[in-house]
Amino acid sequence: MRTLLVLAGAVVVIVLVIVLYPGGGPKRPDSAGAGGPSMLAGAPAASFTVARVDGSPDSLDRYRGKVVLVNLWATWCPPCREEMPALERLYRELGSRGLVVLGIDQGEAPAVASTFGKRIGITFPLLIDQDQQYGRAYAAQGLPTSVVVDRSGKIVTGVDGPMTPAQMRDAVLPLLRAK
C-alpha cells in the first residue's frame, strides 16, 4: 500500500512538471498574418510544373544551379507591361552569366501572353500558370510580383510591385558573383 502511494505521488510530481514546465508546450497563438513576398526570404522556392506559351512543360525546378528572377505578371496589368522591357534587357545582359528570367503569367490564356511577348520581343521563357499556383505560393499581394531565387533554390528576396532596373541588378548581381 505504502509503495502504491509513493508511486502515485511520484506520478503526480512528474505530471505537474510536464504540464507546468514553461517551455513544455506551445504558447498562445495570436494571429496568422498573411505577409507578402518579402517574408519568404530564406525559404525554399516552391515549384510547380506548368506549360510554356508553346505548350511544353516547364517549372522553376528545372533551373536549379542558376540564379532565377521569377516575375509574376499578366497582360491586363499596366505596371507588368511597363516592367517587361527592363526584364528583357537584364536577361540579355546577364543570361550568359547564369541568370534566368521566368515570366509566369497568372491565369490567362497562352495565346494572350504569347501575342504580347512577341509584340515586345521577349526572349526569356514565358510560362502560363492557369491555376495561379505560383501567385499563391509566393504570397503575391498584387501584380507584378518578383522573387529572386539563388543557385541552391532558396528565395533571396521577394518584391511586391514593379522593380526598377537598378533594383533588379542589385538583387541578382551578388548572387551571380557567388559560385
Binding site: 506551445p26 504558447k27 498562445r28 496568422a32 491555376d131 499556383q133 499563391r136 505560393a137
Partner: peptide, 28 residues
Amino acid sequence: GPDTLSVARVPGTVAPLPELGAAAFFST
C-alpha cells in the same frame, strides 16, 4: 491555454503561426 483560433487560408498558401513556432501549409 489559448482561446480557440481558426485560421482560414486559400489552397497553396502558408499561414505563419509565430507563437506556435510553426507554419501551416494549406494543400493545393
